[in-house]
Structures are given as C-alpha cells and as structure tokens.
C-alpha cells in the first residue's frame, strides 16, 4: 500500500501545535493513527520531551521537509531526516508561495527525482494537477498526496471535481489527501471518494478538545473508507420512491 507497508488506520496525524506533549500522546492513541509526521528544527525548549514521546509512541514516523522552498533545502533536510529518524520515508514539501503554502511543482518533481534515486520513499505534497502527478510517478514516487485546501486553512476539499478526477486517473496509486482538512466530515468525504488515507494536523491540535477530536477523525475516516468499499449509490436528480408502491391502500 504505502511503500510495502499496509496500514489498518488510514489517518496520518501531525504532531505540531498541541497544548502539551501529554495531550499529543493521548491524541495519537485516541485517533488510532499508525503514522505520525515529524520535522527537524533547531532544538527548542520542548525538544527533550518530544524525543521521549517519540520513543513511547509505537507509530511509524513520516518526517517532513516543511518550510523548504528550494530543491537544495528539501534534499538536504530529507538526508538529515533519514539519518536522525532512521527511516527512508519522507514527506516532501517544497513550498512555492508564502500565503497559500502551495507546492512549487517544478522544484517538487526535481527534488523527488533526486531523493527517489537515493532510495527514499517519497510522499510528495502536491496539488491535484494530473500532469504533475504523472511526473512525480515518473520520478519514482509510489504515493501522491494532493492538498485538500491550503495548509492549516480547514476549508476541506476545495476542488472536489479535481480530486475525483485524480482518483480516476491514478486508480492503482495510493493517494492521500494532505492538508486543509478542518472537520471529520471532510475527512470522511475524502475516503468516500476512494482516497487511501488522510493526513491532518491543525484540525486536531487546535480543537477545543484535541483528544476527542482525534477520536472523531479516527471514526470518520474509518466510516468513510467502509462506505467507499461498500459502494455508494449513484446520485439522482429526481426523487425515487423507496417504500413499495405495490400493495398501497386506496384511501382517497
């Protein structure tokens, strides 16, 4: 599924912006997530506590290259992450615009090519553009992660038709909606479209009760996935009776 790794939970959870390391740990537990995203930074005050938490969490780590704007920065960050986290998984972000945090697709493809050649398992944060997706696959990526909406915006699936096209265009490629999810219903919607997983952070971390919200997302993603597997009924323009007409009494 994801570079040879099958996941039971299809939620990938970010670890930033929680009120405390303890709340983060409880949120991970409550969500059921088996993959958490992490980063590399100059060590801050919470560094020691975070390392202890990573040791405790049984999750697979997905380091990111958040904040990188060039191929060189992203490639160097990925190499550093592989050494310090001991995993070849990398969530590749090459940011193109400061306000929208949308990826720079040209730099993204170039960085993906370099990293795939070095044996990384690249999870590229991309847009729903089909041609960029194809170029990323050509570069060696075996997963694509289109955005739902700008990072941290909580707008949900802003281009539903585009995401649906992407699912149809890449039927055999694991696709993860990454970023922009604000509510459990939006995550369920992504899964109902047939996406393979959802990656989110802010919606849980900034909830009034992050642990409760983590649990809600876990349920929603499971419900959406089960709904997709069970096969949604086709939409109709007009009503269609559900109670049988046969046997209806004449009371008029």
């Amino acid at each position: 599924m994801f570079y040879g790794v099958d996941l039971t939970s299809r939620l990938m959870l970010g670890t930033a912006q929680y009120p405390s390391p303890q709340v983060l740990l409880e949120a991970i537990e409550a969500s059921g997530a088996e993959v958490i995203t992490v980063s590399l930074r100059r060590e801050g005050a919470a560094g020691g506590a975070f390392r202890a938490l990573l040791a405790k969490s049984r999750c697979r780590l997905l380091p990111n290259t958040a904040g990188c704007h060039t191929v060189r920065e992203a490639v160097t960050t990925a190499r550093m992450a592989r050494e310090v986290f001991g995993t070849s998984w990398i969530k590749l972000e090459v940011i193109g615009h400061a306000d929208t945090l949308q990826p720079d697709p040209f730099a993204l493809v170039e960085a993906a090519r370099v990293l795939c050649a070095e044996g990384f398992d690249v999870f590229p944060y991309t847009t729903e553009d089909l041609i960029v997706g194809e170029k990323l696959l050509e570069a060696g990526c075996k997963v694509l992660m289109p955005w739902g909406a700008p990072i941290g915006s909580g707008q949900g699936l802003r281009n539903l038709a585009g995401l649906r096209s992407m699912r149809a265009h890449f039927p055999d490629v694991p696709l993860v909606v990454d970023a922009g999810i604000g509510a459990p219903s939006q995550a369920a919607q992504a899964m109902e479209l047939g996406f393979d997983a959802v990656l989110l952070n802010t919606a849980v971390a900034k909830a009034v009760d992050p642990v409760g919200m983590a649990r809600a997302f876990g349920h929603a993603i499971q419900a959406g996935q089960e709904g997709f597997v069970a096969g949604l009924m086709p939409e109709r323009d007009m009503a269609s009776v559900s109670t049988p007409v046969f046997g209806l009494a004449e009371l008029a």
Binding site: L40, R42, F50, N64
Partner: peptide
C-alpha cells in the same frame, strides 16, 4: 553549521 533535532511537525 546547522545542528537539527527531531521536533513536532505537520
């Protein structure tokens, strides 16, 4: 020189 540590990330 940059010396980086594991930190929280999204």
């Amino acid at each position: 020189v940059e010396v980086l540590s594991p930190m929280q990330g999204g």
